[in-house]
Structure formats: structure tokens, C-alpha cells
Design a protein around this nucleic acid. Sequence first.
RNA 1: GGAGGGGUGCCCGAGUGGUUAAAGGGGACGGACUGUAAAUCCGUUGGCUUAGCCUACGUUGGUUCGAAUCCAACCCCCUCCA
Length: 416
Amino acid sequence: MSAYKSELLQVLSSRGYIHQVSEPDALDALAKSSSLTAYIGFDCTAPSLHVGSLLPIMMLRWLQKTGHRPISLMGGGTTRVGDPSGKDESRQLLTDAMIEQNLNSIRAVFAKFLGFGEGTTDAVMANNADWLNQINYIDFLRDVGRHFSINRMLAFDSVKLRLEREQELSFLEFNYMILQAYDFVELYKRYGCVLQMGGSDQWGNIVNGIDLGRRLAQAQLFALTSPLITTTSGAKMGKTAAGAVWLDAKMVSPYEYWQYWRNTEDGDVARFLKLFTELSLEEIGRLAKLKGQELNEAKKVLATEATALLHGRAAAEQAAVTARATFEEGVTAETLPTIEIQGPALERGLGVLAALHGARLVGSNSEARRLIQNGGLKVNDQTLDDERRILTVADLRNGVIKLSLGKKRHVLLRPV
RNA sequence: GGAGGGGUGCCCGAGUGGUUAAAGGGGACGGACUGUAAAUCCGUUGGCUUAGCCUACGUUGGUUCGAAUCCAACCCCCUCCA
């Protein structure tokens, strides 16, 4: 690590966000002497962002905290084209209305990490649909297309690898990097944005933007990429039993989110503390020294800090309390995820299979039956061995029935 | 437009007329062991009103007692040629 002089690069590099930087010295000097504007692009094919997007969001957050202006660029325009990779499934293109809806809920997530407004370091939310949708093909070819050399584009890894493996590369994909380069220049013109950040796989695209900026606007632009984050065991981040770990509380509750971080692998704890919390490096260094079972304390800190950033301190503390009661004291915490059921249904007697399905612990009755055979389901902490078991009012403990799948997933049924 | 190859379960991939709900692997989930970790081992992995029934091997028809397997048409993907 070279010794950066600007606070921005010091922070990003010491916390492990940096993989590559173009012209680091010039960028460092600029970041030290002035307030930069920088952006990261996000796609909006899903209704919410998930944990995989957290790293770039944190970079924007640090950017703002060190006195610069972040822009989150939504790919409203590029999403309309659809991602050409993954050609096996006939993916439907999203309608404009769906894209708009996704944009709105994603915006809510950003608001938790960044301060938006009109000030000089207030975050900006841009949407490339604003300019991409207007483009006239011929004009675009003449103004932008002439600056791209096919010879050079063919040399980019993303293209070269595909060609070497004789994999199909559509014209659409080939153009993707041109559109992204254009975004960069457009943001430079509109906001004076001089830095694009992104995952290491974006390097080629970003560099294209830098070139285009020089040719089109005589601008000096910069690239900064972050390493691709996988867990120690090599898996991509953000997938669990229940699917993706979304950042929207309606899709993944704060408790579940806390649990996700609590279950971090040992080898990832220190790295994740640096990347996904704002604890000081000294504090993290102390936590990272913990060994064996004690490391669990560090995981709890990670879980609480990471959850606090997204869902607020109160929700995070409550998740921690719920988890302690559930796992360490063996008590049924009332704050576990709760499903309301109809009181009369319980009086009549509710089949466990239906109850489990209703609580969304299982996807089908067959799945529940299998789990019962494997001893993986519990009612009020008692292993369930009879799939015909009927739940009644007599099963209520303190007004709820606790259903458990495995050791970690619990749901309370509460009659209303 | 011509020639050839191919479309199988979450993914990869075997299977060319009869216990095939479909080998094997990956992934995932459950159990054991642990520290709500990793590794390891065991089990499970289409659905339902589960001794049974239904739905499934690109789509639609056909042959047959019986089809993922044979035939026809169509759709889609890949390779080569024009």
C-alpha cells in the first residue's frame, strides 16, 4: 500500500476497498485539494438491492464522509435493454413501470446510507434513462462511436476471453461498454463527476469511459475498483437458504439480516468488519485477535454494526437481544419473526403441515414431511415426529406457538 | 437458404422402448460433531388429501399393451457453408 495523502484514499485503502486505481497519485492529490464527485452504477432489475451491492454502497458512504459528493447511477436505461448473459432462460424484459417501481424502492435503501440534498457534498441519484432514452442512433455513432476503436475493444479482457473461448458475444453486449463509457462522460458534464468506482470486473468499462472523456471533453477522469468479495469458502456473498439477502426490511427482516452477519465464517470476520461496519481500525484489530469460540463475540459486533447501518441502531440491538434469548438462553423471544393466524382456526385444530407452510418455513407439504423424517422440525422446541400432528389452543405458550426449522430458523404463530 | 449437432430435474450431466420420479456430480437443506463457524460423516432433494394418486425429460400430435427413449411437424440454441 502506497501512502496516500488524501483521507478518502487512506480510508478506502486501509479498509480493503481498493483493488486497482488509475493514476493513483493524481487522484490522491485531487482528493486532497478538492471535493470530488464520484459515481457507481447499479442495475435495477430486482425490486431491491441485496448484500452484494453493499460494498459499493459503503464506498459511496465513505466518499461522502470524507468530504466528497457521491452519485448513485441507476441503470434505468440499460436495464431496458436487459442483461444479455444467461441466455438459457427466456428472460422477459422489464416494463418501464416495473423499472420505475424498482427504482423507487432502491432509492429508499440509498437514503439510509447517504445524505441526499442540494449541498456540495450531498448525494445525487441519477438515472441513465434520462439521457440514454433520448439517443439518436446516427448522432450517437457520429459523436461517440467514432471515438471507439474496434481494435482496442477487442483487446479488452471481457471481449478477448469470450472470443478466445469461442463464446458468443452479441452486438448488444459489445455496445454495453460504449453506453457505460458514455454515462461517465455525461455525468462529468452534468455534475463534474471525475471518478467512477465499481467492482474489479468493471475495470475495462471504466477505462473506456476515461478514454472517451479525454476525447470528447478533454477531461481527466479516474477509475477505482474494489476486489470481488467472496467468502473464505469461495461462495458469492448474499445467498442463503431463504434466497438472496435483500436490503429491504419487507423482504428480509432486521432479525434475519442480523443472523446473516452473525453466521459469517471465521476467516471473513476481520475483513467484513472493515468493509461493512464503521468501527475504527483499532477496534477491529482488537476483535480480530479473538480466537476460537471467542470470535463469536466479534461476529455479534459485526452483525449488530452492519444491521445498525441499514435498519437503525434500535432494530439492530433488538435483533441482538432476540438472538441471545433464542440461542444462548433457550428462551422463546417474543421478538422473533411472527406470523399471525386466525384464532378460530386454532380452536378447530390446525394441521402442522398447513401451519409450517403458512409460516413460510417450508415451500410445500412434501418438504415438511421430509424435514420431519430427518428430525429437522420442532414445535415449541420439541422435535416433531408426526406429520398429522394438530396444533390447538393447548399448544400455546405465552400466547404463541414456536415453530423451528433446523437450529436457526424460528417463527412464532400468534392467534388473533 | 444448405449441412450437421443439440434442447433432461435448482445447475452440470448420463440415459435410445418396460420397477426411470429418471445414474453421477455440484449446489441446497436437515441430522451428528461443534462455537448459531469451517472441515468431516450420515440423510434428504417434483407435488398431493402419501400403503395410493398426479405432474414431469423444448412444444404439439402419432406409433405401441407400454415412450425421456421410435415417427412427424413446429419452436429454440450451437457449429460449418452460402
